[in-house]
Design a binder for these strands. Structure first.
Lengths: 345, 345
DNA sequence: TCTCGCTGCGTAAACGTTAACGCATGCCCC
DNA sequence: GGGGCATGCGTTAACGTTTACGCAGCGAGA
């Protein structure tokens, strides 16, 4: 039934075969394949031609067994693969590629906790190090234990329980302050927040930035102005509806990510209000779609690709045994002014 | 400067060390670690306890060198990681996990074509097989060549040039017909299409489905009603604007993916028209956000997780040397009725 | 002509693990 | 009490590649 072609029936080429075809020893083929070692140019060319013709590729396992590095970095991520991960992984890839490293994607589906622990136990040491992109304090215990034993590890976007574990993230606190400061400058005096998931580090930090920014100008705090969301569009819509039901709705809203900001936008328009005339909105993240909402969303940009790049670079240093200049790196956010913010009515 | 802990300074544990600690030979430790082989329960327990205490993990390279399989599947994907990939990879993961396989993510950034070829040449055979998620006929030549040589390969969502290469995708053609048939049943007689990227297989097939559905009921075709997009929100907005500028705009629009459908929604609302009263919209994909647009989007659901699962399962069969029941699998789409379609005015 | 040094290549150990093989040991059954 | 068999474990070859070492051949300088 199968149409699978098998010109050389199941027999894969080894370096020995290439050596035989070239009439040399395996050592010489190895020298031709690598750049180092003394070899006559003519011999090298001949061998490489045969390699090209036969399509010979070296066995990675043997290679890394003798080289004592696998050239693989594992990237641990929670089950959801979204814009956030998409951007970060791009940066990771940019740093890893030139260094000759590949990405082993490890998806941690929540209901596999036990199986995961088990797998962690039995896990062969496949990679030279790991990048953790798990926003919450999920049960990454096994990996942290490995770290204690010298397994290179960098955490992306949240501080792990162990302060010794290197991490890199955007400055959520500063970013939130930037957002609120912008609204204050425009003259807004009634600014609400739709928070992110407060079980995540980023969610707590953004809320803290919002509060500090208001406290700094001596603004009164009303409990009503803090509505809890969880970063999902649905939670953003719900939160916005609650804010609109207030006797005196806010003139500006800081939504802690772009998904919730977009949902809030829709709710406001549905209610017959105009943006930014009636209500101003600031988001957070600057996801690709933020420039394409109507009106285009003013938001705080996280340099997600930089985050990935920096984290990967730090990991490569750890793998090479080099000391880290900085164990915890915080990258700057930037306010991106578009059209959802304006003067209060 | 580094805070990296190194309790056992750079010395990783080997099976020999465990054997010494347990007072047995390496063979016995191996038998304790694997399930097979004759070993006294007491000895096994003692060894496993030591493994647990020391945190010993076996060297993956040595393991796969002797076992002649790496337990890794490479997933090749273009640079953009979006909802589409996010869903497919979930299915892939579901199939691969239980089988003990990991995912090696290979991001093919366009401007690295040459480097990629080079890397392909030098590439160590890291994985047992590959899954290709590249919508266009990009230069996947090197991998296809490997396939000719017996490297297991499955293409996701487009037929490769070589009909012998196994593939799996949704039935774009049937899905498009479903969408248009639904609009016809509602009574629409002026139905436009915003096409996807016509350099992609999916884009061409969806257009074909639209045309056939109309031809089947003998509807006249107007060139004006086919507006070319490229799956991006921006192209969807542009296309919708062009359609609205027509003397007699269509009463229904089939947008070839959800991104463009959402953008079209915004454009229509901006123009002061009501959905679905003035214009009906059908999308394609059923991405997570489709249920959260206002109004919620009627769309054609692609079973993306199933696609991933099926492709991965086929690949595992190939790796195991089992014949494939079906070389090209087409999965059914389903119309998801929400609130953007209604009777024509 | 002899020696020295360099060049090109073959040889074999090493990387860390598995699994086939074989050898004690102890038990059962006749 | 002895033959046979099952059990538990040690020994070692093998997996495919790199690399340190060593040796032959050759050209150059004295």
């Amino acid at each position: 039934m199968s149409t699978r072609p098998q010109p050389e029936p199941n027999e894969r080429l080894h370096i020995k075969d290439v050596a035989r075809l070239a009439g040399v020893s395996t050592g010489t083929v190895s020298r031709a394949l690598n750049k180092r070692g003394r070899i006559a140019p003519a011999t090298r060319e001949r061998i490489l031609r045969i390699v090209e013709q036969t399509g010979f590729v070296r066995n990675a396992s043997a290679l890394s067994l003798v080289g004592s590095r696998t050239g693989i970095v594992e990237v641990v991520v929670t089950s959801v693969i979204d814009e956030y991960f998409g951007q970060v992984i791009l940066g990771i890839n940019q740093a890893l590629r030139p260094a000759g490293y590949s990405i082993l994607l490890r998806l941690h589906v929540p209901d596999e906790e036990r199986e995961r622990y088990y797998a962690g136990q039995l896990s062969r040491r496949t990679a030279d190090g790991a990048l953790l992109i798990v926003p919450k304090h999920v049960n990454e215990g096994e990996l942290l234990r490995q770290y204690q034993r010298g397994y290179p590890l960098v955490v992306v976007d949240h501080r792990s329980g162990d302060p010794a574990v290197p991490s890199v993230s955007a400055s959520h606190y500063e970013g939130a302050r930037q957002a609120v400061a912008h609204l204050l400058e425009l003259g807004h005096r009634h600014i609400a927040i739709i928070t992110g998931d407060l079980s995540e580090h980023s969610g707590r930090e953004r809320l803290r930035g919002y509060r500090e920014a208001l406290a700094q100008v001596g603004m009164p705090r009303s409990g009503e102005d803090v509505v809890e969301g969880d970063y999902s569009p649905g939670s953003g819509a719900d939160a916005m509806r609650r804010l609109l039901r207030q006797a005196a709705p806010p003139t500006a809203v800081f939504a802690c990510n772009d998904h919730m900001a977009r949902a809030a936008l829709d709710v406001i328009k549905e209610a017959g209000l105009a943006i930014p005339r009636d209500i101003s909105i600031v988001g957070f993240d600057d996801f690709p779609f933020a420039a394409a909402t109507t009106p285009p969303l003013t938001t705080v940009r996280q340099p997600l690709d930089d985050i990935g790049r920096v984290a990967a670079t730090m990991l490569l240093d750890l793998i090479d045994g080099q000391p880290l200049a900085d164990t915890h790196v915080r990258l700057q956010t930037a306010l991106v002014l578009r059209s959802t913010t304006g003067l209060p009515r």
